[in-house]
């Protein structure tokens, strides 16, 4: 992905995020970012049935990187099994932390492949996965 395209992907997802707005229904599990190192404040809710992510939404106020990453991530995980999501998270974390990752699997998330060059922004990019991990801990 060239830098122009990356920026476009991030900004599209920031300005018009997918799955924004919580349903707050009882079969959804919710977690807050509670990020200690920044001011982003995002809630994510997942509807999980038989180990499959049936629906995913978020709401809150956050920077361009956190918001866009959350939008892309939620779009990607709907319809996937919990194990597939865990694998995706692992690959994404590796991408952000400059370790080995599967480019095929990450797709649009490759827009964040140069975040490591701005160390103070890594936590922004990792915000959605930190929150999703909180929800999946019990799965």
């Amino acid at each position: 992905m060239d830098s122009e395209l990356k920026r476009e992907v991030i900004l599209d997802n920031y300005n018009n995020p997918y799955h924004k707005g919580l349903k707050n229904e009882k079969d959804y599990k919710k977690a807050n970012t509670n990020n200690e190192s920044c001011i982003d404040d995002i809630d994510i809710e997942l509807k999980i049935e038989n180990g499959i992510i049936k629906d995913a939404n978020f709401d809150g106020e956050a920077c361009a990187i956190s918001t866009s990453a959350t939008s892309i991530f939620l779009r990607k995980i709907i319809g996937k099994s919990v194990n597939e999501v865990k694998k995706l998270i692992e690959n994404y974390e590796n991408l952000i932390n400059e370790k080995e990752y599967d480019e095929e699997l990450l797709g649009e998330l490759m827009a964040y492949d140069t975040i490591y060059m701005q160390p103070n922004r890594k936590h922004c990019a990792l915000l959605p996965v930190d929150t999703i991990k909180k929800i999946l801990k019990e799965e």
Binding site: C38, I39, D40, A62, A64, T67, N120
Partner: peptide, 8 residues
């Protein structure tokens, strides 16, 4: 613009 984006 989110304040953190402005600061960055």
């Amino acid at each position: 613009i989110f304040s953190q984006d402005t600061a960055i």
